Simulated scan of single mutants.
Amino acid sequence: MRTRVLAICLSLAALPVAAEGDFDTEGGFAAFEQLFGVTEGKRRNHTKGFCVEGELTPVGDAIHAYSNSPLFSGTSSVIARVSHKGGKPNPADDKYGLLGMAMEITTADDDLHVIAMNTEHFFPVATSEAFIELLRAKAAGGDATKAFAAKYPALKAYKAYHSALAKTLRPYEGTTFNSVNSFYLVDEAGTQTAMRFSFRPSGEEGIVTETHPNFFLENMQKNIADGGVSWDMVVTLANPDDVVADPSVQWTGDHTEIVAARFTAKAAMAESDGQCDALNFDPMVLSDGFAPSEDPMLQVRSMIYALGVGQRLSEKE
Rank of each mutant, 00 (worst) to 15 (best):
L71V: 03
S73N: 12
S76L: 06
S77L: 13
S77F: 09
I79E: 15
H84M: 11
K85I: 15
K85L: 12
K85T: 13
K85D: 13
K88R: 12
N90R: 12
D93M: 03
D94S: 04
D94W: 07
K95G: 01
Y96Q: 07
G97V: 01
G97R: 10
L98H: 10
L98F: 09
G100I: 03
G100D: 05
M101E: 05
A102M: 09
A102H: 02
M103A: 09
E104V: 11
E104M: 08
A108N: 07
D109Q: 09
D109K: 07
D111N: 13
L112I: 09
H113T: 01
V114R: 01
I115W: 00
A116Y: 03
M117F: 03
T119F: 04
T119S: 15
E120F: 12
P124F: 01
P124N: 02
V125Y: 05
V125G: 00
S128K: 05
E129A: 13
F131H: 12
L135N: 12
A137P: 08
K138R: 14
K138W: 14
G141C: 04
G142W: 14
D143C: 05
T145Q: 09
K146E: 12
K146P: 01
K146H: 08
K146Q: 11
A147F: 04
F148H: 04
P153K: 10
A154L: 13
L155V: 13
K156H: 11
A157I: 08
Y161D: 14
Y161L: 13
Y161R: 13
H162V: 10
A164V: 09
A166E: 15
K167P: 08
T168S: 15
L169P: 13
L169D: 11
L169E: 14
R170H: 15
Y172I: 07
Y172E: 05
E173Y: 06
E173A: 10
E173D: 15
E173G: 08
G174M: 10
G174P: 06
T176I: 04
T176K: 07
S179M: 08
V180M: 11
S182R: 01
F183V: 00
Y184A: 00
L185A: 01
V186F: 03
D187H: 02
D187Y: 04
D187L: 03
E188L: 05
A189W: 05
G190S: 08
T191P: 00
Q192H: 10
T193M: 03
A194S: 08
A194N: 03
A194Y: 02
M195V: 09
R196N: 01
F197C: 03
F197P: 00
F199Q: 04
F199E: 00
R200T: 15
